[in-house]
Amino acid sequence: MEGIRRRRELAGEKYGEAAADYSGAFSDCNSDHSGEFTAESNLVRRLRLSTISDELLCRLISNLRSESSDARRAAAMELRLLAKHSMENRVEIAKAGAIGPLISIISDPEQQLQEHGVTAILNLSLCDENKDSIVAAGGIKALVTALSSGTSTAKENAACALLRLAQVEENKILIGRSGAISPLVSLLERGSLRGKKDAATALYTLCSTKENKVRAVEAGIMKSLVEFMADLESGMVDKAAYVVNLLVDVAKGRTALVEEDGIPVLVELLETGSQRQMEAAISALARVCEQSAAHCAMVAREGAIPPLVAFSQSGGLRSKQKAEVLIRLLRQTREEN
């Protein structure tokens, strides 16, 4: 126990060092870019110039409840586009009562209608005033359903909408308990590059809470994260490393990282990664090592000390301090053994 306590003190736990903020590496996930509308289409141009009226909103919301799938589809598409470009429109659409009917059509079996519903909710969620209303109307459950069983576009835009809702702190727990973590991990594993990035961004936000970290690890996220970090051409190295940094805060995350052979990958980043990637690797390795002499020995055997020494001589002040802390952890363990 004394060894663990000393390792924690060296790693900064006892003097309250704040976790690094990597949020700048993630997109805002804030645009409707499913691609079926070109920027120059007549419809988009017309709606960008439209002055939204009570009469128009009444008609569109009424059509969302129509028995005609064509009418529902057209209304959802128009509301989606009206909400895409204008903050004022987002407010007015929500005030008119469109959120509930839009959430209802997310469960529609017609794929295009579902996509319009999901994406309209995404666009409305860009307005902070609307987030509580979306949650109150059952938006989280509907978005998780789309995330689990929708088209690729619906899944990607549902991930973005959940991210937006998760920017309200208390919603993070609600989203995790509604079953969002597992389908987000599936999107991270099997989605398009855009889908992977959207999923990583949402998971980074949601995993600031302990219970969501545990859910993500239990859903098997670590395997994909390690694979992304190992592939410098994946376009996902930074995002994967930053999510790993959150997950190693919990014991299951540290165990999963070791079991998925993540330590050699992190040490490799120390040697070949960018500045940000090296900093992320150092933070993750320090968190792993502070809890376990065996893990410290494993990191040292992988050859971490030479690149850490090199980094400590060339990085910025804060990064140099982190590298020096990790070097001391590794050397202390070596001396104890």
Score class of each variant (00 low, 15 high):
residue 6 R to L: 13
residue 11 A to M: 15
residue 14 K to T: 05
residue 15 Y to C: 07
residue 17 E to G: 00
residue 18 A to V: 12
residue 20 A to V: 10
residue 20 A to H: 06
residue 21 D to Q: 01
residue 22 Y to V: 02
residue 23 S to Y: 02
residue 23 S to T: 11
residue 26 F to Y: 14
residue 38 T to H: 15
residue 38 T to Y: 08
residue 43 L to E: 14
residue 43 L to V: 01
residue 44 V to Y: 00
residue 47 L to D: 00
residue 52 I to R: 03
residue 53 S to P: 08
residue 56 L to A: 11
residue 58 C to Y: 08
residue 61 I to F: 05
residue 62 S to N: 08
residue 64 L to N: 02
residue 65 R to D: 06
residue 68 S to C: 11
residue 73 R to S: 15
residue 75 A to W: 00
residue 78 E to D: 11
residue 82 L to S: 00
residue 89 N to M: 03
residue 93 I to E: 14
residue 93 I to Y: 08
residue 96 A to S: 14
residue 101 P to Q: 03
residue 103 I to L: 11
residue 108 D to G: 04
residue 109 P to G: 04
residue 110 E to R: 12
residue 110 E to Y: 07
residue 127 C to Y: 02
residue 130 N to L: 10
residue 132 D to M: 06
residue 135 V to I: 11
residue 135 V to N: 10
residue 135 V to C: 12
residue 138 G to N: 11
residue 139 G to C: 09
residue 140 I to F: 09
residue 146 A to Q: 03
residue 147 L to E: 10
residue 150 G to F: 02
residue 152 S to H: 10
residue 154 A to Y: 10
residue 154 A to H: 07
residue 156 E to H: 12
residue 158 A to C: 07
residue 162 L to W: 08
residue 169 E to Q: 11
residue 170 E to H: 07
residue 170 E to V: 06
residue 174 L to S: 13
residue 175 I to A: 01
residue 175 I to P: 04
residue 182 S to E: 15
residue 190 R to T: 15
residue 191 G to S: 14
residue 193 L to P: 01
residue 194 R to S: 14
residue 195 G to P: 03
residue 203 L to T: 13
residue 204 Y to N: 09
residue 206 L to K: 05
residue 208 S to Y: 06
residue 210 K to C: 08
residue 210 K to M: 06
residue 215 R to Q: 14
residue 216 A to G: 10
residue 217 V to L: 00
residue 221 I to A: 15
residue 224 S to R: 15
residue 231 D to Y: 02
residue 245 N to A: 15
residue 248 V to A: 10
residue 248 V to G: 08
residue 250 V to E: 13
residue 251 A to H: 09
residue 251 A to P: 04
residue 252 K to L: 13
residue 254 R to L: 05
residue 255 T to V: 13
residue 261 D to K: 11
residue 266 L to D: 00
residue 269 L to E: 00
residue 275 Q to H: 04
residue 276 R to E: 14
residue 277 Q to F: 01
residue 278 M to S: 04
residue 279 E to N: 12
residue 280 A to Y: 10
residue 281 A to G: 13
residue 285 L to A: 05
residue 289 C to M: 06
residue 290 E to H: 12
residue 294 A to F: 10
residue 298 M to N: 07
residue 302 E to I: 02
residue 305 I to V: 15
residue 311 F to N: 15
residue 312 S to D: 13
residue 313 Q to H: 15
residue 328 R to Y: 02
residue 329 L to T: 05
residue 337 N to T: 08
